[in-house]
Simulated assay, not measured.
Amino acid sequence: MSPRQAAAYLRRMIRTVRIASVLLVLLLGGVWAVAWFGRAPGESVADAFLRRIAALTGSDMPAPSTGGIQLAQGVALGGPFTLVDQTGRAVTERDFSGRPMLVYFGFTYCPDVCPTELGTIAAALDAMGPLGERVTPVFITIDPERDTPAAMADYVSRFHPRMVGLTGSAEQIAQAARAYRVYYAKVRPRDSTDYLMDHSSFIYFVGPDGRVRSLFRPETTPEAIAAAITSQLRAL
């Protein structure tokens, strides 16, 4: 190829790249506009944009998670577990099959964060009205040493009449925590003979298929959680 031909070829490539860049910008701008005007109630523009891109590419993106954390594609949370409910009955994930859940990991001796987040779950379900009756609130202890079925029964009854409390052996709790990637550790405050549990504090929305659809950070408002779950339940 002569220098003149090479220069002509380079000019054509630059022109092609420029045209492709302009078309890509126009396409993304169009998708953003569609996302803006076609987003679901309570859904952010960013979540709607990702959903539209997923539809164009054929990818399987998680449902919108307004007020929560969007799970990255390929990230899976949740899974099989064998635990004991507050009545002393052995249960597995199959007992909840087909039922959406709001799941929180904590412990009954928690001084502040756990009761706050469980109260948020209860308030979110109440804010959803009749639709909230489709969602089962679940509290899983990370302190099975003290949280017996009787202790769990007393504790969950303070927050919501349908809340399920789950405990089990240390090994069973560890398995469930690993499935949800929950961090927890026993800590003993200075000058205290008792211990507390340090733990992550996310609320998990689990779809009827047992897959975690979205996470909610600590201190997310009940209204934001209710809006997110309502949007996702209507899409199921």
Rank of each mutant, 00 (worst) to 15 (best):
Arg89Val: 10
Asp95Gly: 07
Ala20Pro: 07
Gly74Leu: 03
Met152Cys: 09
Ser2Glu: 05
Glu219Ser: 15
Gly58Cys: 01
Arg181Trp: 00
Pro218Met: 01
Asp154Ile: 04
Asp47Thr: 08
Thr87Arg: 02
Asp209Gln: 08
Pro100Trp: 06
Thr16Ile: 07
Lys186Pro: 03
Tyr155Thr: 09
Gln5His: 07
Tyr195Gly: 13
Leu26Glu: 13
Gln73Glu: 15
Ser231Asp: 15
Val156Lys: 05
Pro149Gly: 01
Thr57Trp: 00
Gln175Asn: 11
Arg134Asn: 08
Gly30Ala: 14
Arg213Glu: 14
Met13His: 07
Gly119Gln: 10
Leu118Pro: 09
Ala6Lys: 14
Asp60Val: 00
Arg4Thr: 12
Phe139Gly: 05
Ile69Tyr: 08
Ala48Glu: 06
Arg190Cys: 04
Pro130Ser: 14
Tyr9Ile: 08
Gly38Asn: 14
Phe96Pro: 09
Leu27Arg: 03
Ala35Asn: 12
Val164Asp: 04
Ala227Met: 10
Arg188Glu: 14
Phe139Asn: 06
Ala20Ser: 14
Phe37Gln: 15
Leu196Ala: 11
Gln172Thr: 07
Gly38Glu: 15
Arg4Met: 10
Glu93Asn: 15
Ala226Cys: 09
Ile173Asp: 08
Ala123Trp: 04
Pro115Lys: 04
Arg217Val: 10
Ser65Pro: 06
Tyr195Leu: 12
Pro130Tyr: 05
Thr92Ala: 05
Val164Thr: 10
Phe81Ser: 09
Lys186Val: 13
Ile53Ser: 02
Val103Gly: 05
Val84Asp: 05
Arg15His: 12
Phe139Tyr: 05
Gly210His: 03
Thr57Ala: 07
Gly74Ser: 05
Asp143Val: 00
Ala174Gly: 07
Asp95Thr: 04
Leu196Gly: 04
Ala123Met: 12
Asp95Asn: 14
Ala7Cys: 11
Leu233Pro: 06
Asp191Cys: 06
Arg213His: 07
Gly106Asp: 12
Phe202Ala: 11
Ala179Leu: 07
Val34Met: 13
Ile140Pro: 04
Gly168Pro: 02
Pro222Gln: 14
Asp198Ser: 11
Pro64Val: 00
Val22His: 03
Pro3Phe: 00
Asp154Lys: 11
Tyr104Ile: 00
Glu117Lys: 03
Gly210Tyr: 01
Pro149Ile: 01
Thr148His: 01
Phe159His: 08
Ile203Phe: 01
Leu24Tyr: 10
Arg190Trp: 09
Tyr180Met: 06
Ile225Cys: 04
Met197Gln: 03
Val187Trp: 02
Asp191Leu: 13
Ser192Pro: 05
Arg146Ser: 04
Val206Cys: 07
Gly88Ile: 11
Pro100Tyr: 05
Asp60Phe: 00
Phe49Arg: 00
Gln86Cys: 07
Gln232Trp: 05
Met152Asp: 09
Phe37Trp: 15
Leu125Phe: 03
Ala174Leu: 05
Ser59Arg: 00
Tyr184Val: 02
Ala150Thr: 13
Tyr155Pro: 08
Gly165Thr: 10
Thr193Pro: 06
Asp95Ala: 07
Gly168Ala: 02
Met128Trp: 01
Gly207Tyr: 02
Phe139Glu: 09
Leu166Ala: 06
Arg12Trp: 11
Val156Ala: 08
Met128Glu: 11
Ser97His: 13
Ala6Ile: 14
Pro222Leu: 07
Ala153Pro: 03
Ala228Val: 07
Asp194Cys: 02
Val31Ser: 12
Tyr155Lys: 10
Gly42Cys: 09
Ser231Thr: 15
Arg15Val: 12
Leu196Lys: 03
Thr57Cys: 02
Tyr9Thr: 15
Pro208Cys: 04
Arg158Lys: 14
Gly129Ile: 10
